[in-house]
Structures are given as structure tokens and as C-alpha cells.
């Protein structure tokens, strides 16, 4: 264990966010130890995507603090940029750059942000494309790939930056059912390697198998936080019970 591992990967304290008058995140507190896999679930509009987007500065918040490792977001501009660079994000709609090949999607940030020479960047990108099992697609454009393949490229693109933390914002919600598994398999593989992961997802099978914490949100608050075993067998909160009922039946 190194020193940074002693610090929680993410510490969210008294986080509050409003969209105008709408209180979208209410007093959210959450500590995520390094190496853990957290699944955030809840009904739509519960604030789970907003919460995960606050963790890499894509959403601003009005109150509270988010600390990634030792860096408090927003406290120091340079450190905030660094923290964001060490946080990978995978979106529901993939958000690959359509004008760039798969390989260039992966190397753009390596070359522009980390100033890595082309050869080095490309071999690193190919390594991660192999890891998500699509090395043969490197020279294609995103539009030539299936949704599942695109999402795996997006994961490889994020991994290239050597993140300490991976955020997944409903990574399988835009996929055809038969492509969900290939993406979840890649994510499961990452989890087994010890990557710290926060996933907003409705894939309860994934939560059960991979997560070590399930966080249930409703109306902007965390109303339940438990191990998957406890959450799925004996959910405490009535909203969590009815949510699981609609999802599992």
C-alpha cells in the first residue's frame, strides 16, 4: 500500500447543487476507498448522473466539496486539471470523436495533453485496444463500428490516460441488448484488476457480481448505501424496495 492508497479515492462532503430553484443534489456525502467498485442506481431524475458528473468537473456545484485522492476540486486550478486528467469518464452516448480513427481517438489526449511522441502513444493505444478486444478496428472510424465496439473504444480511450478512477455514466443504456455483455465483460475485467470504479447503471447483475457497494439515490439524496448482498436481499428504504421490484420483475 502506498500513501495515496490510504486516502479515499473519492470523498464527497455535503454536496449540494441547484439547477435554478430545483435542488438536484441534496447534502450528498459519500466516501469511496481506493480500489472499490461502487454502483450508483436509482430512478431517473434522482441525480445520479449529475453526481457522477460533479466528480470530474463537468458539472459545477454550489455547496460542499469533492476530493479526489488528495486534491480538492476547484481549490486550485492547476491541481483540478491534474485531478481531472487522472479521472477517466465513459458516457452513455460514447462521445467518440467521429472525425478521427479509433486509434487517433485514443492518442489525441496522449499527444496533446501528455505530449507523448506519436510512436509511443500509438503503441499504448494499441495495447488498450487489445485489452478491450478490438485491436483490429484501430484504423476504422467510429461510425463504422457497432455501439458495443464504440463503447469499448471509449473505455480504451479513457484508460490510455492511466486514470486512477474510472467513471461510467450509464455505459450500456444506449446499447442493443446483445452488445451490453461485451461492454460489461470489459468493465468486469477492469474491476478484477483493482481499478477504482464508479458506475451509474441499471445493470443489477453487474452490480451484484462486481460492486462492493451499492448506492441508491432518490430525489437528489443518497437514501441507501449497502453491500450488494444486503441491498438486493433486504433493502431498507421503501423507494429502494419499489425500485428493485420494478427492475427485477
Amino acid at each position: 500500500m502506498t500513501q495515496t492508497d490510504d486516502k479515499p479515492a473519492v470523498q464527497i462532503a455535503s454536496l449540494n447543487k441547484w439547477y435554478g430553484a430545483f435542488h438536484v443534489l441534496k447534502e450528498v456525502n459519500l466516501t469511496i476507498p481506493s480500489g472499490s467498485r461502487v454502483v450508483i442506481c436509482g430512478p431517473s431524475g434522482s441525480g445520479k448522473s449529475t453526481l457522477i458528473r460533479c466528480l470530474n468537473g463537468l458539472e459545477a456545484y454550489q455547496q460542499g466539496t469533492v476530493t479526489l485522492g488528495t486534491i480538492e476540486l476547484g481549490a486550485n486550478a492547476r491541481e483540478t486539471v491534474l485531478a481531472r486528467r487522472q479521472t477517466g469518464m465513459v458516457f452513455q452516448s460514447f462521445n467518440l470523436f467521429p472525425h478521427l480513427t479509433v486509434l487517433s481517438n485514443c492518442t489525441l489526449a496522449l499527444r496533446r495533453v501528455l505530449r507523448m511522441p506519436r510512436n509511443e502513444a500509438e503503441s499504448l493505444a494499441r495495447h488498450f485496444l487489445e485489452k478491450v478486444r478490438i485491436p483490429e478496428q484501430a484504423t476504422k472510424y467510429p461510425a463504422q463500428l457497432s455501439g458495443g465496439q464504440q463503447q469499448r473504444v471509449a473505455i480504451a480511450r479513457a484508460l490510455c490516460m492511466n486514470p486512477r478512477l474510472m467513471l461510467f455514466d450509464e455505459p450500456t443504456s444506449a446499447l442493443d441488448p446483445e452488445m451490453v455483455k461485451e461492454v460489461l465483460d470489459v468493465m468486469t475485467g477492469l474491476a478484477h484488476e483493482g481499478m477504482t470504479m464508479i458506475c451509474v447503471t441499471h445493470e443489477m447483475g453487474f452490480a451484484r457480481e462486481v460492486a462492493d457497494q451499492v448506492v441508491f439515490m432518490d430525489q437528489g439524496s443518497i437514501v441507501e448505501q449497502a453491500s450488494p448482498v444486503a441491498f438486493f436481499s433486504t433493502p431498507n428504504h421503501p423507494r429502494a424496495r419499489s425500485f428493485l421490484n420494478t427492475l427485477l420483475h
Binding site: N95, F97, M161
Partner: peptide
């Protein structure tokens, strides 16, 4: 999402 992806990559 394009700008968001770019930001998330640290560009």
C-alpha cells in the same frame, strides 16, 4: 458530448 469528452480527457 464532444466538448465534454474532450474536457474529460483533460484537453
Amino acid at each position: 458530448g464532444q466538448a465534454e469528452a474532450a474536457k474529460a480527457l483533460g484537453l
